[in-house]
Every structure is written in C-alpha cells, then in structure tokens.
C-alpha cells in the first residue's frame, strides 16, 4: 500500500522514470522516510508505555535476589525494557554495585541496555524486516550475557573506583503512576527521541537513497563480502565513534548490504555503533579504573566480532 502510493507520487505525478537513478533514489527516499517515521512514533510510544512498568529501581530489586548465572540472563533481558540513557549509566552502575549485584551481572545490563534499543529495532524492522530485527535482538542478548559472564569470572572488583563502594544509597522509592502519567510519559518520550533522531534519519535515508540509485550493484563484495576476513574488525572500529547515530547508520547499512556487504559484518557494525560509545566510556571512567574500562570494551568488541564472523559463516 505504502509502496503503491509512493510510486504513484514519484513516477505518476512527478513523471520520473522508474528505471532512472533519480526516480529510483527519490522513490526509495520518500517510501523509507514515511515508513520509518510512522514506525518511530507508534513503536516508541508503545515501548515507552511498557517501560513505565519497569523502573530501574524495580530492576535492581529483581537482580538483587537471583543467583549470579541467572542474573546475567535476567539483566540482559531487563536491559531491553528498563529505560536507559547514557546519562543514567553511572547512577545505575553505582546503584547496582552498592546493592550487592555482582559486577558481571551489572555489565550484562550495561551492554544490553544501549545495544538492544528501540530506535535500532524500529529501523531494522522497518528497513530489513522482522527476521533481521529478531536476529539482532537475539545476538545482542547473547553478547550481553556472555560479556557479563566473562567479566564476572575475571574477578575485576578491585578495578572499580573505591569511592563507589563508599556510597550508601538511600531506600529507593517506586512511585505509583496513573494511566494519565504513563501516557504523558510515553508522549514525552516520543517527542524526545524523534526530536533527537529525525535529522539523522533523513540524512541516513538520503545517503542510502543516493547510493541505491547511483552506486553500481555489488561494488562492495570485493571489500566487505563474506570472504574478506578483516571486514568485521574494521566495521567494529568504524562503528565505535558513530554512537547515538543508529538512526542514521542503519539506512546506510541497508544499502551497503545491497551492494555486497556481508550480513555478519553489517550486524557487527550496527552492534558496535549502539553498544560501544565513546561518550559513555568517558562517563563510566568516573566509576571504572582505566583497566576495567578497557577490559569491558575489549570483551564486548570481541563478542561483537565473533557474532559477525558466525553470521558470515552461517548465512552465506
């Protein structure tokens, strides 16, 4: 339905030819923009409503009670639904550690929360379909669980800044929200996220559209195809500084894939964009000594690369 409406506008009303690069680029741009913004508003609203039932205080209470191995799994899952932004990473970290939640479990949460986020999910679902969106969620959760398990085993508690252990947090209050509060929160959240990402979405889709129309098909196979071994680590390195631009990066990834970038490499790239962020690292430096911070980044980066290689090997 969407496609037919856009085709009618671009090819029928504007009189552009379906075969020519300009027509096909414009068609791609309008179609994807309309679809993504529709999905952004509807799904962020739904997710925000869901999230209003999972305040961080509740998540902390749940994680306090479970044994460590189950804790990693639960922490990764709760990371998906607990509201999170990089400004809450530090207080969450302190709150968890102070409540006696193991370091590894805390990291499972810190990896999953930004990686499996609603914007990345919507973009993947809208542009790639639900199969790839699920693949992304699934492998994101596995990376989060395993990274937490590894960090837990390494016994790194001494590399947490001492002042973290000296903080005593007060009893948390869990407020009771009315339906009106929840709806208001959800609308506010839609405004906040869409207000922040819309320029990136437009620029990302525009670049994607241009490449779709003008770049020759499979010109990337040689550089980023499944048989190029260094493509995965390179994709992760490029992904780290692009934090918070998942919205702009994913439309470009779609086109990179069309032109021959391998599936695993693309997934690794997107995970690196969302999970590993320099601004967040700078914030976390307040509570983690450099060594632990480096191990955290290293473990997650290795997990992401392994995921990339795995999917490149399986989905050929």
């Amino acid at each position: 339905m969407w496609q037919r409406a856009v085709d009618w506008l671009v090819y029928g009303q504007l009189g552009l030819s379906a075969g020519a690069p300009l027509g096909s680029a414009l068609d791609f741009f309008i179609y994807d923009t309309a679809k993504i913004f529709f999905l952004l508003v509807v799904i962020i609203f739904a997710i925000a409503l869901l999230r209003s039932y999972f305040p961080a205080e509740k998540t902390k209470k749940v994680l306090e009670k479970v044994p460590e191995s189950l804790g990693n799994v639960l922490a990764a899952l709760l990371g998906v639904v607990t509201p999170f932004c990089s400004c809450s990473a530090v207080p969450l970290f302190i709150g968890f550690i102070e409540a006696g939640i193991p370091l590894g479990v805390t990291f499972s949460f810190l990896v999953s929360a930004p990686m499996v986020n609603e914007v990345a999910l919507i973009m993947l679902w809208g542009l790639f379909g639900w199969r790839i969106a699920l693949l992304y969620i699934g492998s994101g959760l596995v990376v989060a669980i395993l990274s937490g398990l590894v960090i837990g085993r390494l016994k790194l508690e001494k590399w947490v800044e001492e002042h973290v252990y000296r903080i005593h947090s007060g009893e948390a209050v869990i407020e009771t929200l009315t339906w009106k509060d929840r709806l208001q929160y959800a609308w506010g959240y839609v405004g906040e996220i869409v207000g922040k990402v819309w320029p990136y979405v437009l620029v990302g889709i525009a670049i994607g559209g241009l490449m779709h129309g003008y770049a020759p098909a499979d010109f990337l196979v040689k550089y980023a195809g499944p048989s190029v071994w260094y493509a995965v680590p390179l994709a992760v390195l490029i992904g780290v500084p692009l934090y918070s631009n998942a919205a702009g990066v994913i439309p470009i990834v779609k086109v990179l894939m069309e032109k021959g970038m391998a599936m695993g490499t693309s997934l690794a790239f997107m995970m690196a964009v969302t999970a590993l962020s320099l601004p967040e690292a700078i914030l976390l430096r307040k509570v983690l000594k450099p060594r632990l911070l480096a191990i955290y980044f290293g473990v997650v980066a290795i997990g992401i690369m392994l995921t990339g290689y795995l999917f490149n090997a399986v989905l050929r």
Binding site: P55, A56, E57, K60, P83, C87, S88, P91, L92, I94, G95, E98, I167, H168, S169, G170, E171, A172, V173
Partner: peptide, 9 residues
C-alpha cells in the same frame, strides 16, 4: 543523588 535513592535522573 544516590543517597536519596535515585538511580534514574
């Protein structure tokens, strides 16, 4: 902030 029990500013 933590002393007041707040984890989500």
């Amino acid at each position: 902030i933590m002393a007041m029990g707040v984890m989500m500013p």
